[in-house]
Structure formats: C-alpha cells, structure tokens
C-alpha cells in the first residue's frame, strides 16, 4: 500500500479536457476507475508519451479516448490482441488494456486466457458492470443470477464467470479485484498491476447505474456505489458478526500472484541464447 499523498496529482494533466464532459452516463463507475488508473500511473511516474492505452468496444472501450496519451480504440473483444502486438513490437511502451466484461470475457475470452497464459507484460483492466451497456443492456458473462437485462427478461439463469478466477487459472501472474468505491485501494491495486512484470489482470467492480441499475432497481448512483461494499466479503471478514451481512462473496485486493518469466523478455533471452548456440555450433 502506498501512503503517498495525493496533492501533487492533478488529473487534468492527464486528460484530453477539450473532450469533456465525457459521454458516460451520470454515476457510471468507469470514470472513477479511470481516475484511479491515472492516479496510479502518476504515482509510478509513467510518462504519458510512453503509455499506450488500448481499449475495446463498449462503454469501457470509450474511456481510453479521454486520456491524453497514445490511445487505441480497437475492435470488439480484441484489445488484448492489439496490445500483444503493440507490446511485442514496442517493449519500451507501457501498454495498458481497458476492457469490459463482455469485451473481455465473451467475445474476447479466447484472447484473455491466452494473454494470461503467455504472461506478456501487459496490464489488463476489466471494468465489470455486469452488462452490455453500450448496446442497451444485454446479459453479459458476469451478469449476476436473476438479474434482469433486455435479453434476460425473466432474470438471468446462466452461470456466471468469476473473471479473476478465470484469469488466475489461465496463468495471469497478478490478478486483483477492487470496487470503485475504494478509490485509493483501487489505485494501489493498479499500482501493483502496473509495476508487475508480466500479465496483470485487474477486475474493477464498476456501476452501470442508468441501464443495469435502473433495470434491476439497484438504487441511485450513490446507493449502488455504497452497495459495492455489500458485494465484497473478503474471507477475513467472515464471522465478524453472528450472521453474514454481505450477500456477495467477491474477494478484493490482489487475489493471485506468481512470478513467472515475462513473455517478451523470455522471448528475447531465449532467442539470444539459442542463436548464440547456433552460431557457436556453426563454427
């Protein structure tokens, strides 16, 4: 955890202010997540010239454009693929992917698991609002059971992905989750992810108030963001009271971490070693 004070972080230094107000709905958690990300980048002193934000399609995909850096808003589900190419071609850049639950886990699910497996030095930020917001509120792989969406008019009956478990199982070397309400914690998680050498996956519980919240009667923006607290119940809080007070069981913080060779470095070292042997053998 960082205890650095905030005062030297001026977020507008990092924003394309002429694009504001942004297009996101009132109360949308994505803006909060974006702030935390930029805060972490600021604390790490990462130059905006050396940063590349790659985002997919959906509300999450639109967030990158507001950051004054190298931004790429690519095809649906593919930001990890684009980012893989970009990072391999340009190891000098800090490449961060911003994606959504649908973008990342549904259409982009294949890319996610392989990105996790490879362990290329990318940071993947998945803004999980449990819904396809941009297209008007369809069910997503993370939509909780019994929630109403435009394509689950009788409530969602499908099993739900736990994105972090998925990423960890696929081999992501740093996996974490946080809620937008805990902005400083989210910032710290981003810091850890950005500092991590290898593929880091951060799931952000971000509220879609206008579409998902409204459809499911989850309350106004404030209530939704406060309810995030109810959705996280790290094991450590268990049995604190005589009966559980949080219905959810999402763990937060860094949930998995392993130190594996980073793909890009390993690739270069591996090749250098093999080529050296080949040349030697040739002689």
């Amino acid at each position: 955890m960082s205890s650095a004070e905030h005062s030297d972080f001026e977020i507008r230094d990092y924003l394309r202010t002429d694009l504001f107000p942004h297009f996101m709905c009132p109360g949308c958690g994505h803006g909060i997540a974006l702030r935390a990300l930029l805060w972490a980048l600021h604390e790490l002193g990462i130059s905006m010239d050396k940063l590349a934000l790659v985002s997919g399609i959906g509300c999450s995909g639109r967030t990158a454009a507001y950051v004054d850096t190298n931004t790429m808003h690519v095809t649906h589900g593919r930001p990890l693929a684009f980012a893989t190419g970009l990072k391999l071609a340009r190891p000098d850049l800090e490449v961060v992917v911003i994606t959504g639950d649908g973008d990342c886990l549904a259409i982009g699910g294949n890319h996610l698991i392989h990105a996790c497996r490879r362990n290329l030095d990318l940071t993947c930020v998945m803004l999980n609002n449990e819904v396809y917001g941009m297209t008007g509120g369809q069910v997503s792989p993370t939509t909780s059971n019994d929630r109403f969406t435009t394509t689950t008019p009788l409530g969602n009956h499908e099993p739900v992905f736990d994105a972090c478990e998925l990423a960890a199982a696929a081999g992501a070397s740093l996996v974490g989750r946080e809620i937008t309400l805990q902005t400083p914690s989210l910032k710290d998680l981003f810091r850890a992810a950005l500092s991590h050498r290898g593929f880091s996956f951060v799931e952000v519980i971000s509220d879609c108030t206008e579409i998902f919240g409204r459809k499911n009667d989850l309350g106004n923006s404030t209530e939704m963001i406060l309810k995030q607290k109810s959705a996280i119940r790290p094991e450590s809080y268990g049995n604190v009271v005589d009966q559980p007070f949080r219905p959810g069981n999402w763990s937060t913080g860094i949930l998995a971490r392993n130190e594996r060779p980073e793909y890009g470095t390993n690739y270069r070292e591996h090749i250098a070693a093999k080529l050296a042997v080949a040349v030697k053998g040739h002689r």
Partner: peptide, 19 residues
Amino acid sequence: CRLCEWLCPDFAIRIHIQT
C-alpha cells in the same frame, strides 16, 4: 478529504490543498 473528487465519475470536482 477528496472523497468527492475520487468518486466523481465525471472528473468535475477538483480539490486544491495548499501546503
């Protein structure tokens, strides 16, 4: 305390703290 600044999804609030 910056809670409003942090939790403003619209980046509409800025806190200035003069040291």
